[in-house]
Structures are given as structure tokens and as C-alpha cells.
């Protein structure tokens, strides 16, 4: 399946991407599986996505937890805990 991934704030600066399109392998169908896939890129990706840091996720503009399933065409966003207000 094809998804769009967005990165924000500290995470965007660390990975040096704001957005990318990813074609997922068949066995990557949840947020946590996507995080593990990104962590395999090594370096800063491993630091961010292997579970050591708190990285929040949203699918199609809704906050979700790591077990949420992914669907073809989803917009997935990763960002640090929010600090507005």
C-alpha cells in the first residue's frame, strides 16, 4: 500500500524531511510496524523510531496510538509531544 508520511518540529529537523511517499511492504500495516521500518534506516531514524523517544502519531489528522492499522492512501504524521498554548 502507498502512504504519505509527514514529519514535524524536532523530528522534521532531525530526519531532514518534511514529507515523503512510502510504498509499504505487505507486513507493515500498523503505526508501530511503520516506526520499526523507519528505525531500520539507521542513525537518527533509529534514535527516533526504535522506541527510546516519545513520538506521537496521527492518521488523517487524528491522534492515534501505535497499534492503529494503516490503510492505502493514509496521511501519517509523526511529531514530538505538543507544546502549544
Amino acid at each position: 500500500m502507498n502512504i504519505k508520511v509527514l514529519y514535524f518540529a524536532r523530528i522534521k529537523e532531525s530526519v531532514n524531511y518534511s514529507t515523503e511517499d512510502i510504498v509499504l511492504p505487505a507486513d507493515v500495516n500498523t503505526v508501530v510496524a511503520l516506526k520499526m521500518l523507519l528505525a531500520e534506516r539507521g542513525e537518527v531514524w533509529a534514535d527516533l523510531f526504535s522506541g527510546k523517544q516519545v513520538v506521537r502519531a496521527a492518521i488523517n489528522h487524528e491522534l492515534v496510538d501505535d497499534m492503529m492499522a494503516l490503510k492505502d492512501g493514509d496521511e501519517v504524521a509523526f511529531f514530538p509531544p505538543v507544546t502549544g498554548g
Binding site: 518540529a9 511529531f79 505538543v82 502549544g84 498554548g85
Partner: peptide, 26 residues
């Protein structure tokens, strides 16, 4: 509304100090 905004709305603050810029931690 303020308590929920602080923890759920996707805003991030970056502050500039004499030592440079840094992201504000939640």
C-alpha cells in the same frame, strides 16, 4: 479547553536564547 489544547493540538514552540534555538519540551 486550555488543558486539552496544551496536550492535543499539534503546535510546537521553538525558542531563541543567547545559546541559540531550541525546541520547548512538553
Amino acid at each position: 479547553i486550555m488543558d486539552y489544547l496544551k496536550t492535543r493540538a499539534p503546535f510546537w514552540k521553538k525558542e531563541a536564547t543567547a545559546d541559540g534555538e531550541r525546541w520547548v519540551e512538553a
